[in-house]
Amino acid sequence: MAQDFDRALREGLADAIGFVGGALAGWGLGRLLGVDFIASTDWNAQQMGALVLIVVGCGVGRWAARRVMLKDRP
């Protein structure tokens, strides 16, 4: 049971860290490209592209965090 709890805890932490870190990375990339989705009140193609960067960042961050944190321990 302790192994199940440990794995569930690592999965939850990996998801949380991955989602937040990935979203921040996607937002930062959008800002580097000149589009700040968070600060804008417009809804145009540039803003939608910036939103896509944030969403893709969430997915990639979650994937990367799970790869790192859920490696089988010897």
Score class of each variant (00 low, 15 high):
A8V: 07
D6M: 08
L51V: 07
F19V: 11
W27E: 07
G26I: 10
L29T: 14
A64T: 12
V56C: 14
D72V: 15
L9R: 08
D42P: 00
L33G: 12
R66H: 08
D72R: 15
R10D: 04
L33Y: 07
E11A: 15
A2H: 01
R31V: 14
L32Q: 05
R62V: 08
V20N: 12
T41K: 14
R66T: 02
Q47H: 03
A23P: 00
G12I: 05
F19S: 12
Q46A: 12
G30T: 02
V68D: 04
Q3A: 14
D72C: 13
A65N: 06
P74F: 03
L24R: 09
V20C: 13
W27T: 07
R7Q: 15
L53T: 11
G57T: 10
A16D: 09
L51E: 13
L9Y: 05
M48V: 10
D4S: 15
A45T: 08
V56D: 08
F5S: 07
V20S: 14
D36R: 11
V68F: 11
D4K: 08
V55K: 10
I17W: 02
K71E: 12
A39R: 06
W63I: 01
R73C: 06
I17K: 01
G22R: 00
V52N: 11
M48L: 14
I38F: 04
R10Y: 06
V35L: 02
G61L: 03
M1T: 06
G22Q: 05
D15I: 11
V56Y: 10
G18Y: 03
L9G: 11
Q3E: 14
A64M: 06
A2K: 06
G30C: 07
G21K: 02
G26E: 06
M69F: 10
E11S: 12
L70R: 05
A50Q: 00
G22E: 03
L70Q: 09
V55M: 14
C58F: 00
R67F: 03
F5N: 07
R10Q: 04
A2T: 05
G30M: 01
Q47Y: 00
D36Y: 02
G34Y: 02
V52Q: 14
A8Q: 15
P74V: 11
L29F: 08
V60L: 11
A23L: 04
L9T: 12
L33I: 04
R10T: 02
A2V: 03
D6R: 01
G57H: 11
R67T: 02
R73T: 15
G26L: 01
F37E: 09
M69K: 05
L24G: 04
Q47C: 13
A45P: 00
R10I: 05
A39E: 09
A2P: 00
G28H: 02
A65M: 13
G21R: 03
V56R: 06
D42I: 07
V68C: 06
W43A: 15
A65Q: 04
V68I: 14
